[in-house]
Design a protein around this nucleic acid. Structure first.
Lengths: 119, 119
DNA sequence: TATACATATGAACAATAATTCATATGAAAA
DNA sequence: TTTTCATATGAATTATTGTTCATATGTATA
């Protein structure tokens, strides 16, 4: 209960040390921002579906669009975001551009998300 | 090269089997939607900061607001979203409501996100 | 070089979401 | 019971973002 006293919410009784302690252990603003930006990328069902498709196969833009029944433009826009986040990579083969997962973090992060949901 | 032929993007040459194979291994729409919704929750720096604060301490709403230099209302709105997603839990103690992390998935997911960023 | 095809991209529009403000709810104390 | 304090919430506003449409870029082929 002693601890609770200093956590009281009245402005004049708040224990600054507690607030400062928590703040001192926080990563810097930039990292928190980048982290949120990364998860924002996962936070769209179109992009999640693209990632899932790429779990199976390396595919070109048009195939992804067909698989997901969406326009080439919409997919291309989203692939750009996924690429900028380092989640997918691509290689050109003639006129086509093939996309694939950049690394295994994608699978791990999604797997963790699924675990959380399945409870 | 044989495989590439069937992946050609010309509408009349697309190999439907490939598209169907990928589709058959996709989780159902609902799960993909839920997954995106979950990551959307992580995809906001205010909520990420709240989660980080709760890594350290169980805290009441007002303390969180002070720690993050935000209004009580804004924090309360976000805590509601975090609670609905099952990421945080709360308990009432008199007039105050204390929030804490619901389970370890939060830490794991964020840890994976950080790993990805730090490359 | 001219044409066709695959992909990328800018601008506009529509939809979604975060914060603020005002106020309601809920609990303890006077 | 009335007041005070902590939290929750609805409505309005602002900001952000996904998709579409039109078009540009880049590559291969005729």
């Amino acid at each position: 209960m002693a601890i609770r006293d200093v956590e009281c919410c009245d402005v004049f009784q708040v224990h600054d040390e507690l607030v400062q302690k928590v703040n001192s252990r926080m990563p810097d603003e930039d990292e928190l921002y980048d982290l949120a930006e990364l998860f924002k990328v996962f936070g769209d069902s179109t992009r999640i579906r693209i990632l899932y498709v790429l779990f199976e196969e390396e595919l070109c833009v048009c195939d992804i669009a067909q698989t997901l029944s969406m326009t080439q433009s919409a997919i291309s826009h989203q692939l750009r975001i996924l690429k900028q986040s380092g989640l997918v990579k691509n290689r050109r083969e003639g006129k086509q551009v093939f996309y694939s997962l950049a690394d295994d973090h994608v699978r791990t992060i999604i797997a963790q998300g699924r675990e959380h949901i399945e409870e």
